[in-house]
Simulated assay, not measured.
Amino acid sequence: MKFAVIGGTGRIGSQVVQKLNAAGHQAVPHSLSTGVDIITGQGVDDAVAGVDTVINLANSPTFDEASLDFFRTSMTNLLAASEKAGVGHFVVLSIVGVDQVPGMDYYRAKVLQEDLLKAGPVPYSIVRATQFMEFVDAVMADTTDGETVRLPHTPLQPIAATDVSDAVAEVAAGAPLNGVLNIAGPDVYALDELGRITITAKNDGRSVVTDDTAGLFGAVHGDVLTAPGDARIAPTHYADWLS
């Protein structure tokens, strides 16, 4: 099978390309650096021509309200080109519980992306993943003041990027789900607890203070970002990933 991997040079995209090619498929990475601009449309028709499946892993450069325009424009361009090229399957990566956090601009933008795909002309699959283990440091940096990290008690179920890429590659190589696959890591942590575990493991000198208004995840209420009952549970534990 031939795949066009949009955002194929990024964290997840590069792994998906490698795994699909190792399995005997032809997966081609596309991004701004390869001359494909999904906002202006430059290079998009050529990128999707002759492919069986488009995998869209491109991410908005911002997490604010501008992300709505990014996903609206990029999906409109990609879906139109995919329909014209006769693409048979379109895959996007989204977020577990994304439709349960209306107070977060970026999550509303990802819901818009999902809705455009569902209403579009191409058979589709949506893979929703929980928060990446690789993003914990960035989350902590965002709410660090000196030697203090302020984090809410929001429950998360972190998943390793390699497990996400495995699931995306598997779904992309299969028949369209015309629905959603939820994937999650095996363990649930409160975000403040996750911060303390991370600091201890890395001998970091900072301390964590629980603040339920801090950072992006201060807008999240309840356990909506943990795995629903139908989720596939990935094998990598956070403690093993840290080590």
Rank of each mutant, 00 (worst) to 15 (best):
P61R: 07
G50Q: 12
D105W: 01
D137R: 13
Y106G: 02
D192R: 05
E134M: 09
I38V: 15
F71H: 12
T143W: 00
V54A: 13
G205F: 01
V91T: 14
V17I: 08
R232I: 14
M140R: 03
T130K: 01
D145A: 04
Y107G: 04
T73R: 13
V101C: 10
S14C: 05
L116S: 09
T154P: 03
G215F: 00
G195M: 03
A23V: 05
P29Y: 12
N77T: 14
P235A: 11
F135N: 10
Q26C: 10
P123M: 11
G185S: 02
S67C: 12
T40A: 13
D145R: 04
L68H: 15
N59W: 02
P176Y: 06
G205E: 03
A239R: 11
G195Q: 01
G103C: 11
H237E: 06
G120Y: 05
E83C: 09
L32E: 07
V44C: 07
D115P: 10
H153W: 03
G215Q: 00
M1R: 15
A172M: 10
V44A: 10
L57A: 07
R128N: 06
D137A: 13
P186E: 04
D223N: 15
V122Y: 04
A201C: 00
A66T: 15
N56R: 02
N178S: 10
A47C: 13
L32H: 13
E65C: 06
D230Y: 04
G24P: 05
V92K: 06
L156Y: 00
R11S: 14
S165I: 06
I38S: 07
V224S: 10
E170I: 11
V168E: 06
S74E: 08
K118A: 12
I12A: 10
G8I: 02
Y106F: 14
A227T: 08
Y238M: 02
